[in-house]
Amino acid sequence: MTLGEVRFEREALLERARSGDRTAFSDLVRLHQDEVFTLANRLVGDRERAADVSQEAFIRAWRALPAFRGDAKFSTWLHRIVVNTAWSLRRSQQRRPTAPLSVIFQEPAAPDRNPQDLAAASAMAPRLLSALAQLSAPVRAVVVLKDIYDWAHSEIADHLGITTTAAKVRLHRGRKQLHAVLWDELGSDE
């Protein structure tokens, strides 16, 4: 199947899901679940909570799908929902802390999907992820969205409900902390 055919098939799937076809939406969920989970995990820094966030994000996406105009890519739109969901769940958990759905999602952590992904990512990735997990959630979110997902400062500020200046300050702080934590690794040869 060519790239064009794949794109056409995905667009058809999206169109069917937009018109209320649940099966088409489940196919979209299966196509995007790993990337959604990856973003959620980087934002919340915990696999169990990331699973909750991903699930909730997909449910919100399903509800909002008729309003999706297609101005942005579906995955970009989905990423925005994940960020909003992660942040709103975080706020609600801060108000009333609850236990995560650990019973449902008890399984060993799978570091990567396939060898190509492993090859594409750097050897430093596990250490980098562990250093990211040490940052506070608000700082980590900005670093993840700016340096990994290349979002604009204004977009990050909008989604996290902070000012652009605050986003820049957090990014500066986050990079400085990572620089300090990973000092030795960053100095070694690639």
Binding site: Q33, I104, A110, A121, S122, M124, L178
Partner: peptide, 17 residues
Amino acid sequence: ELGRLAQYIEQSPVLMA
């Protein structure tokens, strides 16, 4: 290195979908 992490996709829990 942070930019490269964009290609590092983790596997979601089996029961999620």
